[in-house]
């Protein structure tokens, strides 16, 4: 279908699931944000096809849906990395040098905040207080929270992911050889 251009197979399947779930949700505007949240949970971002789908279901114009989605920090329109890095830029973390941690992630991953590495392995985002100010500065790698961050720890975290990946690749390779 034209609408699904640019999506991979998994994404098309996820979208089909959502389409079948839509029947349960009344076509009322108040369900717009919960619906977008549901889509993003399944696809990790909001591709154009999903916005069209939601608009169709709620009888809204795609412009309107896109306008609402772009208002909120939660929604993204490009896929995130497999290991999203989120650096806390809340007050306590700022006072303790959170910007230095963010910059060091940017330097080491060679991307800017809001971007994803070309191999889609990492992405960097800034977040406001994650509620652990006593551990400032704080960063999250995936869902794991790391307190009392230092530049050295930044390198360690990235390295750990890369080693895991390397290991997984070797194991795959081993299996393929066998």
């Amino acid at each position: 279908m034209l609408m699904e251009m640019g999506l991979d197979r998994e994404e098309i399947a996820a979208l089909a699931t959502i389409r079948s779930e839509l029947k349960e949700i009344p076509a009322q505007r108040r369900y717009l944000i919960p619906l977008l949240q549901r889509v993003q949970q399944a696809l990790s971002y909001l591709p154009q096809a999903a916005i069209q789908l939601v608009a169709q279901h709620l009888h809204l114009s795609p412009s309107e849906v896109y306008g609402v989605a772009t208002f909120y920090n939660q929604f993204r329109f490009t896929p995130p990395g497999r290991h999203p890095v989120r650096v806390c830029m809340g007050t306590a973390c700022h006072v303790k040098g959170g910007d230095i941690i963010l910059e060091h992630f940017e330097r080491k991953l060679e991307i800017k905040e809001g971007e994803t590495t070309p191999d889609r392995e990492f992405s960097i985002e800034r977040v406001a207080c994650v509620g652990c100010c006593a551990l400032a500065p704080v960063a999250l790698m995936g869902d794991a929270l790391h307190g009392h961050m230092m530049t050295g720890k930044v390198e360690g975290l990235i390295l750990r992911v890369q080693i895991e990946k390397e290991k997984a690749r070797r194991e795959m390779g081993d299996r393929d050889e066998r």
Binding site: H59, E64, F71
Partner: peptide, 10 residues
């Protein structure tokens, strides 16, 4: 009912 222009971003 279906505005063709919308505010986007913030």
């Amino acid at each position: 009912d279906h505005p063709q222009f919308s505010f986007t971003g913030r």
